Amino acid sequence: MSKLQRKGARRIADISIDCLESLNRGEIETANLVEWLAVDQRLLLEHMLQQNGRIHYLQPILLLLDQLQKPTINSINETIGRALFDLITQHGDHTFLTIISNHAADLVRCWAAYTVGDDKQLEIKELLLSIRPFAADRHFGVREISWMAIRNRIVLDLDRSITGLSLWTMEKDENLRRFASESTRPRGVWCKHIDRLKQEPSLALPILEPLKSDPSKYVRDSVGNWLNDASKSQPGFVRTLCHRWEEESDTKETKYIIRKALRTIAK
């Protein structure tokens, strides 16, 4: 079995020394969340920069990491990504963004997603285009980080973001369809809420409507969770929408979404 096919350990303590060393050197991807949490991002950063002749980037980033009041895996990930953007910009080192965007290690690609998301020069249409490769990444971690990397920009330009993301609901790639829903969840996970969508969830109907009977469980889970988020502030909207969907779309996929959407209301 190849390293990419392994299932991954159930506990950090069960990860082999050889596997952990390979992860920290950026030679392989993490196989599951346990491995993702086990990677020493500082060590991975050092190896990656050394391998690519950018070791002079290390100390400025480490100084920023040392200043973190709550160094979680997500805050470390974001800090490294945004610091890399500043360094790439300062040195005109745009080829390095290409290198990290295509790196073998999923966590390095996560840093690249934050680097792309930190480019304030990009309009939301350009930003969505730039984040697409990360939203469609083969690795779950990169896909999750991709929407978090531009979540604040989506909030600041919500109307145009919804318009752009509504087109993603027609994509063949389920990861892109899922991104459209997950990135706009009113309450979301590990991120700030979108107050406007908490109060006006109907604004996101151009995203939700095309996904009401999506063939992918990955997408259906996100849509169901989106509506469950909305039900906590606008239960009437969610009840009405689910009732209409029930009448319009008599499929097992829609029924699945409705059950997830109404789970808080049903308690």
Rank of each mutant, 00 (worst) to 15 (best):
I154V: 15
E46G: 05
N52K: 05
A31M: 04
I154D: 14
L49A: 08
T72L: 05
D195P: 09
M1P: 06
S213D: 15
A112K: 10
Y57Q: 02
A113G: 08
C19R: 12
S166F: 15
D195T: 13
V34S: 04
A9K: 02
E174C: 09
I207L: 15
L84Q: 01
L107E: 15
R177M: 07
F237G: 01
D157P: 04
I61N: 06
R244Y: 02
G188R: 11
L205A: 14
Y218V: 08
I55Q: 00
T251Q: 12
D195W: 05
E123A: 03
L211N: 13
L43N: 00
L107Y: 11
L64V: 01
A230K: 12
R54V: 07
M48I: 10
I76Q: 13
M170T: 12
V116S: 02
K198D: 06
P133M: 03
I257Y: 12
R10K: 03
M170G: 07
H94W: 14
K70M: 06
H56T: 10
R82Y: 02
R132H: 09
H47Y: 10
Y256S: 15
V39Y: 04
D137N: 06
S75Y: 04
T163N: 00
I28K: 01
T264V: 11
I17N: 08
D118I: 00
S233Q: 06
A112Y: 12
D118L: 00
Y256G: 15
Q234F: 01
V39I: 11
S216H: 14
K120F: 04
L227W: 12
A83I: 05
L4K: 03
I88K: 02
E246A: 13
A38G: 05
L211R: 12
Y256P: 15
R244V: 00
F140I: 03
F237I: 01
V116M: 07
K252D: 11
Q5C: 00
A112P: 06
V219E: 12
T184C: 11
I100L: 04
A204S: 14
I131K: 10
R138F: 05
L156R: 13
V238Q: 11
T169V: 14
K172G: 13
L84E: 03
S222N: 14
L122I: 08
E171H: 14
A83E: 07
T254F: 14
L208E: 10
R244C: 00
V34W: 04
K120V: 01
W168I: 01
T89V: 08
H139K: 06
E123S: 08
L241Q: 03
V189S: 03
E35V: 11
R187K: 14
N32E: 03
T240L: 00
I12C: 08
E78Y: 05
Q67F: 05
E29K: 10
Q199T: 09
T169G: 14
S233A: 03
I17R: 10
T163V: 01
L43H: 00
Q67L: 08
I61T: 07
D119F: 01
L127H: 10
P201N: 09
I17A: 10
